[in-house]
Amino acid sequence: MIVKKPSVNACIIDNNNTYVYGFKKLISLKDLNSQVSHFNNGSEAIIHLKDPLNINNLPDVIFLDISMPIMDGWEFINKFAEIKSQLGKKISIYILTASVDVNDVERAKNISEISEYIFKPMAKQRLMQIFDSLQTDIARQ
């Protein structure tokens, strides 16, 4: 019996349009049954998350870049920590960045909101693993 896997609501916050294109393309090519929203920086994403109209359309997972204008990844996480209790939904955050700076890696380790720190570009196997476990989680709920 084939059970249709549940849909994953994913979100990518990154100002590198080429990467975002590739990310979305990979998800669609791999048939990961997911809708992907995209924000150019942390500020846009916070506005989206806080908007009550989006209460039923909140992401299950956020892939977050660090270096962005207006509001970078770190600032986003601070803001996110402030509002997450009001969101009423468990949202996993993965750092997805080209930064190999050890300071960034260390910093991420000390932030409880962050599930994992992943270097760009992400291997497709890893992406599929993440989606797989997300779908298991969602199915359980």
């Binding site: 990467y19 393309k25 990979l26 080209a98 190999v100 570009p121």
Partner: peptide, 24 residues
Amino acid sequence: YIVSHNLRSHTGNLQFMVNLYEET
């Protein structure tokens, strides 16, 4: 930092796209 970050970001994207090209 520039060399490692900025070049890395481009080469990463390049690698990503080449892999994607092979996917389809």
